[in-house]
Simulated scan of single mutants.
Amino acid sequence: MNILMVGPDPAEKGGISTVISNFKQYYSSDEHKLYFLSSWSGTKKWQTEWNAIRSIRRIISQKQIDLVHFHVAQKGSFFRKALLKKLVPSRCKIIFHMHASQFDMFYKNSHRLIQLFIRRTFNQTDHVVVLGENWAEFYRTITKTNVSVIQNAVRIPEKSLFNQDARTIVTFGRIGERKGSYDLLQVAERIQPMFPDVRFVLYGDGETEKVTATIQKLGLKNVTLGGWISKKEQEAILKNTLLHFLPSYHEGLPMAILETMASGIPNLSTNVGDIRDAVIHGENGILTAPGDVHEMTKQLTKLLNEPLLLEKYAVCAREKIIRDFSIENYHTNWSAFYSSSRTW
């Protein structure tokens, strides 16, 4: 079976690009052959989008594609894939692989005609794949198309990178309100007098100017912005990281959480999206309600005061990823899923 995978350029920033990059680097099957078409690029946005529109039918014909696997988020990503979907010949099966962190809000806040278009697009798709049961429940309310769950996965480092002597807490990903960055700053403000040696570093892009202004306004000496980093740089950073802190308001299943857990770095996060499928509260990390700065501060204080508890979470976090979120198991699941498409 020949499969065309359509989504953002794998060299771009973000979780979806990481997923596609992992497919490109590690997926191997005697039964299925993958081809790739970039539909979005941050540096060559319009050229990449136009090239995708212009070339998708030619690639499908030349490579004798049987199934098109679209990687989809909300807003522009959804509309781009909806357009490209219309160019796919009827003989091909179509998968919408949903990575959106706020598709429920995007749908709810859309005009009723746009909502109708969204439902029709899904209903005319052969299968929808989501990152967890929480999102599956939502998509089943807006489409009659079958919805399956295949959770994200990551490559497992050879050994744990957890360093119990580290005093740095990091956040990877977009910086801004959705990711709870301003709540993190409030937590850092409360932690600063109690643990003056602890540092918070936010790695990523987004609302950097506004966050910098807030850091200055609050007089925080324990928070810095680290910019966007490569995977190689991330591994070096994790060797001196005590905890990954992601107080998001909306999520799917963030690659940053899976990657840090795989490296043996515990997580303090929020119980949104499908994060709870990976972070088990009180077993391998901590979950709080989004926006609950008091509870976040309380839990972080406890972790900083109990290094043995943090070390236990580090071990259990890595074991959880090895058991349930390895890239090998992930691609085995996708191979089985691709094979099942013959019966749709």
Rank of each mutant, 00 (worst) to 15 (best):
V211D: 03
T125A: 10
S341N: 13
L34S: 01
I118V: 12
L225F: 10
D324W: 11
G15W: 03
I257L: 04
L83H: 07
I257T: 09
A153K: 03
T270W: 00
P89D: 10
V279Q: 03
E133F: 10
E158M: 14
Q115L: 09
R91E: 15
D126N: 11
P254K: 02
W344Q: 08
L303P: 06
G42W: 10
V129E: 08
Y27L: 03
L258G: 06
I322S: 14
W334V: 09
V129H: 03
L238W: 14
V198H: 02
V272P: 02
V154M: 05
K85N: 15
F23Q: 04
I95Q: 11
L310V: 11
I95E: 00
Q25C: 09
I322L: 14
W46P: 00
D277W: 06
V272K: 03
A136T: 01
E295N: 11
Q62N: 14
E12T: 01
R276N: 13
R91Y: 12
E295M: 15
I56M: 07
V293M: 02
S110A: 15
A188Y: 05
V279L: 01
K63A: 06
W334H: 07
I229R: 11
V211F: 05
S326M: 14
W228N: 05
W228L: 15
F195C: 08
P10F: 05
F78Q: 05
A136R: 08
D9G: 08
I60L: 00
I60N: 04
G14N: 00
T288R: 01
G7T: 09
P193F: 07
L220S: 04
A256Y: 02
D324A: 11
V315A: 12
Y203S: 03
M296Y: 07
L87A: 12
G204T: 02
E133V: 06
T241L: 09
Q124P: 06
R318N: 15
I257F: 01
N123G: 08
I275T: 00
S29A: 11
H69D: 13
A289T: 12
S263C: 14
R276M: 12
K312C: 10
A153Q: 05
T18V: 13
